[in-house]
Amino acid sequence: MRLSLRSRFDGRSGGRNLALLVGVLAVAPLVLAVLGLDYYTIVLTQALILGILALSGDLAWGSTGIFTLGQAVFFGIGAYAVGELAKHLGVTDVLAASVIGLGVGAFAGVLVGLFLFVGSRVGELYVGLVTLALAFAAERFATGWDVIGAYNGVPGIPGPTLGPLVLEYGPTTYYTIFALFVLVLYGAYQLNKSQFGLVMRAVRDDGERAEFLGYRRTTVQIVVFSITSALAGMAGGLYALSSGFVSPSFLGVTLSTQVLLWVVLGGRGTLVGPLLGLGLVYVLGGRIAEFQPQLWPVILGLILLGTILYLPGGLIGRRVVPLRKRVAVTTAAAPTGGGDRV
């Protein structure tokens, strides 16, 4: 399916925006400390972890066209794995948690990816609905399974450590997570910029054409799906440590659709866009929601609707083809790709 929502990340731009964002995030705790808003350092720490989740959603959907509505499933699996290990075996090291999250996320991602993509030409919307249903089922399952705490989830997870250091809430934890976040962001940026990134966009824009160039579309999809699931798992593991609990909602539909919301708002395929979307919804929105708890969700919904209607490329996506180029578009308006499948 060709989407009308197309942003044109060409793999070579966007680096400056990302560098700017990293710069702002690097000094943010200092600014917040000066302003006496130390509490927001903790909020930002959580946002950085969710940022890894946002990046995973953007790589899957934005760059490769895998319309996943179930990123939270892998986030939740990572969170439960790390939460249980931290609680019962004392695994609280953030690096260990990252590795565990990546591992279980990748494992689950490979399984789901094989199920979704091998041997079937399922359409984009089918992937969306199945992953959404999976998130729904996963949350129900976790709610009912006593072994992982059923309704209560996993409370009382000990705080994060780094080697021998116990990480206090505030700047110490922030900068540790920040380092991991920048690492993931850099990796995602390089992946988009690499020749593989070009292949991802080729699969997104016209997967059948890619096959007729000799690419194995299924393999590309499974590889990307596994990578993004691994990143979601890593985010979940870190989130479990930094928030001190895991609940069934970590696996569920609400968080999954949040990821979609960040990506759509910010601009798919741009990396920086979904992070800004997350910032708008989670950081800024969280602040507004404190004094307008009823009005803010309505406003957010209207912003989302407005974005979809009027800025289909997202807040920062380049969505308008300059007039000069439009002529060429209309004269060569050849349909690309097969029909829509579900």
Binding site: M1, L3, S4, L5, F67, E124, L125, G128, T257, L260, V264, Q294, L295, P297, V298, L300, G301, L302, L304, L305, I308, L309, P312, D340, V342
Partner: peptide, 23 residues
């Protein structure tokens, strides 16, 4: 003409309706 666009737009509509009723 755009099934995925319809999906997103109706997701946003549902979101707005739900939150208005909640408010």
């Amino acid at each position: 003409g755009s099934p995925a666009g319809a999906l997103l737009a109706t997701f946003a509509l549902g979101f707005v309706i739900r939150e208005v009723v909640r408010a």
